[in-house]
Design a binder for these strands. Sequence first.
DNA 1: CGCGTTTGACCTGCGC
DNA 2: GCGCAGGTCAAACGCG
Length: 604
Amino acid sequence: MPKRPSKALMENDNTHLGKTILEDKTVKSDGDHEEGTPMEITKGGHGWHVEPDLEHPSTGKNRALVNHKQDELQSAKAEMVEATEENVRLKLLLSQISKDYQSLQMHFHGLLQNGGETKKCTDTSSITALDLTHEQNTEEADDLVSLSLGRTSSSIDQPGKDGRIKKISQLSTNGKDDDDDNGMLNGAGLALELGCKFEPAADQSTDNNSSGGPKEDDLAEIWPPSKMLKTTRSRDDEVSQQTHLKKARVSVRVRCDDHTIYDGCQWRKYGQKIAKGNPCPRAYYRCSVSASCPVRKQVQRSSEDMSILTTTYEGSHNHPLPMSATAMASTTSAAASMLESHSSTSQQDLINSTTAPISASTNLEGVNFSGTSTLSQNSRLPQKHFYFPNSSISTNNSHPTITLDLTVPSPSHFGIFPSASGSSFSSNPRYPSTSLNFSSSLDHNNALQLQPPWNNINHTASGYFNYGNRINQVGSALNVGKQPIFQEHNILYQSHSYIQNKKPSPPPLHHPQMLTDSMATATKAITSNPNFQSALAAALTSFVGNGSTSSTTGIRESHQSTGTIVESAYGLKLKRGESLTSNSIFPSSQNGIGCASSYLNESL
DNA sequence: CGCGTTTGACCTGCGC
DNA sequence: GCGCAGGTCAAACGCG
């Protein structure tokens, strides 16, 4: 039997493939098989074989065998025709994708050329959030497509000028240029990034570095000279563009009995230190997904309450993240972005902003992206600041640090001031440290019923990624910043098996539960801030995720399988579906799902 | 043997 | 300039 060629082979010559094979066979069977050599069907050197040997058809003894072979041939022929048709369809689809991509690209470039037009778009209600994400996505797709959570606005204003982003592009696309016909698919590679300061944004330089010092000065703060000497020049260049002043840090305080929280990323411990005033050692980790990834995290247990674990993230991932890591990454990047967005503002502004009540704190749709208010920054919600309880500005941090305090339960959402322990304001002339108290306050919402992974029928204990449920995973993981963030926590949960695969027993139930609820809340609140470019980027992620999965069924299945039903998310899906329908990048077919998700799997 | 962790030494920034 | 504390390095060590 001839091997059915893979689609990859078929795409090389999909229109004449079957015909070629048949012609080859005809030639071979006419002449070459009198010697009893194996009849070989060849196509372009790939070496498809037909076996076994056919004896001369003139002998009646083998006539039945010949008939059988002819049947097989007919079957193979039909198969080839079918495959050919399928490839024609795929080609048409690819062509359509390319057209859409180019159209969107031109559209976005047109907006960019108007200078700051993008920002205006965010200020007007004429363009919906999804429209905006659409355009942003186009911009990203132009360069790479790397979805950078928490990028500064300038990075959006100046697409393609960020050399580092281009490096990510090379990472994501294996060096292929974005002009590649597969650019759209390549664009599915996601590079979720923490923080947003690696770009020498003009506003940042003017605000924080009025002297206009060279980037190396900034670099030296992160990479000491001795270390800089040890690095290669190429890495210097890369790092120099990644680092900007002191990197913003995002601390997450959770109650956790384990030595670290489960954020889905892969870390390697490189140091441990006893910090002053805390008998518990501080552990230093760096991201080990990529050797060049600058992201680091510090884990330290609180000396006052040993059950509280403080994890501090710093830096931006320069590689595609595991889907299981996107939840934490999006949250921390959003927080970092918020902090950095405030870093150029006065302290009072910061205080005002962080203490202003969130206008839609109890309205999930108002908080998440589906409400179109958060992304588009339109005027539907007059005040999109949100209130951070336990706001504090401390002096003991040379880095701008935002702390997500997930340890203190509060009776409601952000509208109520808790007993802000240590919420006194002290002065830090350089970098404020904002403490955000995102408590697990969503339990009252019947729509949010998270289940731990070990209760999840989709949970696989050993999977880095759950390939068997990749539709669910992709569908949920890429909804960064939207309501389906709750699905991400599924992935966060599932990351237990990957990150902590050395641990035979699952972590305590209540801690991840609290963490995920709180993270969801935190993410909502953070991304609801109109100043957050990260929110925008998160929506881009969502858009691509939706586009790549495009199967609301898949997302819904994810909900059902996890027992999580998010009504607003469902409404969101409808909205996104409209947007995507107009785009028609990915059809709502399983093919589309498989295509995109398989790429993501490959890219990760 | 490879990989991750441990741990003491070293470097750097900052305050005095 | 000095001392302190934070952060990082890298050899040693342990584990699978």
